[in-house]
Design a protein around this nucleic acid. Structure first.
Lengths: 153, 153
DNA sequence: CGCCTGACTGCAAACCAAGGGCAATTGACT
DNA sequence: AGTCAATTGCCCTTGGTTTGCAGTCAGGCG
């Protein structure tokens, strides 16, 4: 039984050809490293650090610096979203087409396990804060931290 | 006209003697660098990086490493709270006695100006998320980003 | 199909926040 | 004043991230 893909989270599972198509559409080259990176991100449902992406790559197929550069490019193109779990390493997740990728996480501080929280409860509060302080283009970063069921024993 | 100090924010303005007293109470030494750090934090109402504290110190009065160590100590003692504005440098703010220091900020992405947001709207949502996922001891980090009135022109 | 060129990659060095080791110093107490 | 553990300064290390440069490659063109 196939589940309809209206869910933010599952919509991240895009065909590789769609992804490379988005690159091509911006006259970017579809290189080996970039394909490998997209393939890896496509298979992982949680944000990954550049080092994790690097490690997931068969035989250090590309250089770590290349991954850093690719992630910058993909972020600018809106194909990935950067998250900060507060441990000093940036993490990236694929963003579905048409989606802005905005969501949050619940992270276990013991085992580093991640739960995706697809809803965002702050849209309204955010506009209130923006209005109250005269700010424009207000966004927010929010992550939850705690101890997961498995780590509680 | 003097405003009553029931406000989270203004309660951060503590006498230096009160601060050093808290150190003494935990059999910690009241050293020159620590006094200088507390004095600087007391005068600033927004979170400061270690480097900023260092720069605010008369004549490089102490070593940067000392500041790092002092901030760890003060954080453990609950005298300062660590914040992360996502720019790769930790920031610290004094915490009032009896307060847990939990609050958020609205940060201008152009001029780096900071507005303190004393309320937290997520207490209830936080417990929901904790319960729904079986997590314990859940906390969160939240900061808002936007463009301040002055930077909009 | 093979060439051309700018985009891209690999490598190494550099950068920055942060933290650690160790010897010298100092605050707090007797 | 003397003692001792706590603290500091100096310097070096670590980890994540970025950059300069030279060689390589994807993709368009003939």
């Amino acid at each position: 039984m196939k589940k309809a893909s209206t869910h933010t989270h599952s919509s991240r599972r895009q065909e590789l050809s769609v992804l490379t198509g988005r690159l091509r559409g911006q006259s970017r080259k579809i290189t080996g490293p970039r394909q490998a990176i997209l393939e890896i991100l496509r298979r992982h449902l949680h944000p990954m650090t550049n080092r994790e992406i690097f490690a997931a790559m068969p035989r250090g197929r590309c250089n770590l610096a290349t991954i850093y550069r690719a992630m910058h490019l993909l972020e600018e193109m809106g194909m990935v979203k950067r998250f900060d779990f507060g441990d000093g390493a940036a993490r990236f997740e694929l963003v579905g087409e048409g989606d802005d990728g905005h969501h949050h996480h619940l992270i276990c501080t013991r085992c580093a396990g991640v739960v995706e929280i697809d809803e965002c409860f702050l849209r309204e509060i955010e506009s209130n804060i923006a209005a109250r302080n005269g700010f424009k283009a207000v966004t927010h970063k929010l992550e939850f931290f705690g101890i997961c069921p498995a780590c509680q024993r």
